[in-house]
Amino acid sequence: MSLDIPTIAFYLIAIVLVGSALAVVLLRNIVHSALFLAVMFGAAAGAYVLLNAEFIAIVQVLIYAGAVTILVLFAIMLTRNAQSQSSNPFAKQWWLALIICVLLGFGLVYAVGNSAMAVASAFAPVHLATLGADSGTVTRLGQLLYSPFVYSYVLPFEIASVVLLVAIIGAIVIGRED
C-alpha cells in the first residue's frame, strides 16, 4: 500500500466527510448541526477536486456551502423554539432506523465488492488529481452541457432552469405572509 499525496488527501477528506456527517446527525443543537453541514459540503468539494471535477467543486462551494447553508440557517433562525431544551431530538424509533441503515450499509458495501460490474471496474484506478498536471475538464463539460451542434444535454439543461424558476416562485408563494 503506497502512501502518495492523493491517497493521503483522499483518506483525510473521507474522515472529515464521515465525521462531519455523523456530527450533523448526532449533535443535539441544530445550529451546530448546520455548521457541521457546511464543513461536510466543503469536504465534498475537496473530494470533487481530487476526482478532477473542478467545475462540480466550484458549484458545490457556491450552491451548497454558500446558498443552501444560508437557507438552512435562516430556516433555523425563523423556527427557533425557545422553550424546548434540545433543538434536534431523536424520534422514539431511532433504533429501528439504525437497524435499517446498518443493514442497507452492509448490503451496499457487499454489492460494491461483489457485483459483476463492480468486480470488473472496481480496481480501475481513479484518475486522481496530481500536482502540476493539466487535466481540465471544464471545456469538455461546457460543450457537453450547451453545444447545440454535437451530442449534448442542452434540452435537460434548459428544463432544469425552468425547474429552478418554478421552485423559486413556489417558495415565494408558500413562504409569503397571508
Partner: peptide, 23 residues
C-alpha cells in the same frame, strides 16, 4: 485509491444521511 474507495465512501455517507432522515 480505486473506484471502490469512493463507492464505499458514498455508501457510508448515504447510510448516515438516511439514518438522520429516518430518526
Amino acid at each position: 485509491v480505486t473506484l471502490n474507495s469512493f463507492l464505499v465512501l458514498g455508501a457510508i455517507l448515504f447510510c448516515i444521511g438516511l439514518f438522520g432522515a429516518l430518526s
